[in-house]
Design a protein around this nucleic acid. Structure first.
Lengths: 186, 186
DNA sequence: CTGATCATGTAATTCGTTACATGATTCC
DNA sequence: GGAATCATGTAACGAATTACATGATCAG
């Protein structure tokens, strides 16, 4: 793979019918953000790089006096996307979770505070699932109108993931409290 | 927060009794790696920075003719770690998952290939859970010998997470196939 | 008319990985 | 003797965020 993942995010969003850098960023923020983020600082330069590679082509389509650049996939771009989808390139699955890192290191704290950490962790994920549920109707509409099932399926993955962590927190809190009650540790 | 997360990884590993940069890296690789990685390129410079801040102190303890530097937390270091554990600093919970990104963008592919993507995804996580299960005995021993329960608890989180994804893949594969059988899409 | 949204971009900085360089010790 | 492991670091590079800068349009 010579193209970065961000390139495929951009290519992919264009394949879903998005047109401007702004559009792409907006869609990323309510979809792939949960498992692959991208900022303007990546998207705009990436669009130019992809155009140099002839994987996309741009067209200036001002809206009134406002500058506006629409992008579209070229045949080569569509091919590059398809090939990446089918390739078995490195399975990047990084998780960066400060809450878990905290919990990992929390042995030094007294039980009450360790339990508090778990409650905070659960609260974070409850906020997370709430945010995703708000997006859900939009994704469902997209699935029904344009036949794009996968954005909805991955959103459901996200919701199920948050639920998993929420349940794990509750469960673990219970275990820690029980263990303490039976007189094991501070 | 003025210290990066990596600083707390280092501080935390020292609090668990690790001593050299090499030790820290080895432990990271079988523990926090799954939700917070760190490389030599971060660890060694970080140790020096932390010493400048007087959060750790170093001592040269050669082993034979081999150079070796042991680090230990200072009182200030212990305090900084404890404060961070209890702070409600930004809840970083990023996920970077190339497999999910692929799946998100896979609407353009025919069903068989979309199902293949899911199978690959499941295989990745099966490898992941396998790697974690190999580490489990060590973590369990650490819990029993040193009273460090949290490394084991977070490892169990990891295993449960992998299982969650594996089950989701199976479930989703079934749904996609059923939907196709009932004649919805290609 | 004002605030939200649409729209495009750059520069500085931070963060992190990878590759390299070096060498001793330990286990088989 | 040779491979694996212990051990310490740096340099170059790449990836990504944040802040900044600018300005038009649209909805109320």
């Amino acid at each position: 793979m010579e193209l970065g993942k961000t390139a495929y995010v951009v290519l992919g969003m264009l394949s879903l019918g998005k047109r401007t850098g702004y559009d792409i960023k907006s869609l990323v923020d309510v979809s792939t953000r949960f498992f692959w983020a991208a900022s303007y600082g990546q998207i705009y330069p990436e669009l130019k790089r992809l155009e140099d590679l002839r994987l996309v082509k741009s067209r200036e389509v001002p809206q009134g006096g406002r500058r506006r650049v629409e992008y579209a996939l070229t045949a080569a771009g569509r091919k590059a996307l398809r090939e990446w989808l089918l390739s078995d390139a490195d399975p990047v699955m990084e998780l960066r979770h400060a809450g878990l890192l905290r919990f990992f290191l929390a042995d030094a704290l007294p039980v009450e505070q360790r339990v508090e950490l778990l409650r905070n962790l659960r609260a974070d994920h409850e906020r997370g699932v709430e945010a995703m549920r708000q997006i859900e109707p939009g994704a469902r509409a997209g699935a029904e109108k344009h036949g794009h099932d996968h954005p909805l399926l991955t959103l459901e993955w996200g919701i199920a993931y948050q639920d998993f962590v929420i349940n794990w927190c509750s469960e673990t809190e219970r275990r820690i409290i029980e263990q303490t009650a039976s007189g094991q540790r501070s």
